[in-house]
Design a protein around this nucleic acid. Sequence first.
DNA 1: ATCTGTGAAGCCGTTCACAGCG
DNA 2: CGCTGTGAACGGCTTCACAGAT
Lengths: 245, 245
Amino acid sequence: MTPRQNRNRDRADRGIPEATVARLPVYLRALHSLQERGVATVSSEELASAAGVNSAKLRKDLSHLGSYGTRGVGYEVEYLVYQISRELGLTQDWVVAIIGVGNLGRALAGYGGFASRGFRVAGLLDADDAIVGQEISGMTVEHIDRLEDLIAERGVSIAVIATPAAAAQGVCDRVVAAGVTSVLNFAPVVLSVPDGVDVRKVDLSIELQILAFHEQRKAGGPGDHDPRAGEGPPGTTQYVEAVQR
Amino acid sequence: MTPRQNRNRDRADRGIPEATVARLPVYLRALHSLQERGVATVSSEELASAAGVNSAKLRKDLSHLGSYGTRGVGYEVEYLVYQISRELGLTQDWVVAIIGVGNLGRALAGYGGFASRGFRVAGLLDADDAIVGQEISGMTVEHIDRLEDLIAERGVSIAVIATPAAAAQGVCDRVVAAGVTSVLNFAPVVLSVPDGVDVRKVDLSIELQILAFHEQRKAGGPGDHDPRAGEGPPGTTQYVEAVQR
DNA sequence: ATCTGTGAAGCCGTTCACAGCG
DNA sequence: CGCTGTGAACGGCTTCACAGAT
């Protein structure tokens, strides 16, 4: 139903693998860092190393966006930054509301990585009257009662849920009913949402538990931090690729 | 309670897929929740639904740990909680240090999900003299100079890095040199570590960027639930040097 | 000569569908 | 019969290795 003119997306198509999408932000960050250092051109090998992946994967990933490199040379940093940004939708601004202004919500409100990537925090909401009215990172915390109004008035398209677990599903239902279709959930619960709504979850304790699992099999249990590392089956660290500096 | 403590890792072996490991904490949480509600037995269908996966996946995942279900009946909640906890290494305590006590570090220090899962925060460290000495969640922030001593004295086995990006690699090098082989990194940089050291990364802005990617192709761009928006295709942005830093 | 872009192969994870056991 | 446990089929992602462009 969307009549779109295909310019240079003949080959890029609209089928970018999810795994690739998840890595594009990492490439983008590495590119920004190169840009700040005044680097104009970069090879797949160099960029891959800066991003912590191998070069074949990087090239394959970029090939899903189009042919933006020059054989025999590499990629032009600035151009690649633009192409990835556009693909991720970062050439437009996204309006975000943060719901739940505890320690975590506060941390998120003050996180520089949002504003610098085209995410504009347009509202901080909480249910606690002791918190409502406080000024956090230059914004005044508003009452959760205003949630629906605020979403409509300010055009919020992404909701960040940083409430206690018990409140999360209720808040989620409300933002979805108000038209939001993208949710970033920090509460330790599985949110259920209708089709068409995207939920991504960040769970601090799950990450620690995964680390504990691997730590446990390295040697003899906790407290065993002696410098004799690097044993175990070859696949032990396969989910993180070490990079040389 | 537990029928027989037989060593049925003939089959379970030591080869649990990474994807399965990443889901075990989710199952564990769902099981705890069932436990609180007094449920004694659960089918793969019910547990899968509570965890947000399908039942075939859940059964396959659990089969990697052993045969802990009863055909025709389901799984005994308490027994399964124990088996998963043991597999993840949560039957022992893990000593954690949090480095960087900004907003995020503070949020982590006060996060209830740690203590309740066998993670004991044994130190909060920061480089800022204005922060050192402060009391956070019942702990006194210590100076980063004491990092190595503290790791050794208290047997820290997992380091949580919540510093600014620029400081993260340096801190990482120090904790690794001090013998830590598991790192949870919240700083927006790719850490390089020697083989045998596990790094897991949590990146708030990457998650938002992935959401933005999907949101972008749902319809016409941000603010889409606003009757006024949604005019043109996603590619409406022209190629200008519209890249923000 | 060099480095990108990509078929092809291999690996891993998910899903299916049913055998096996209570 | 009901539900778990699992071989087998499938699909997607990663890696290899080289064809192809500059």
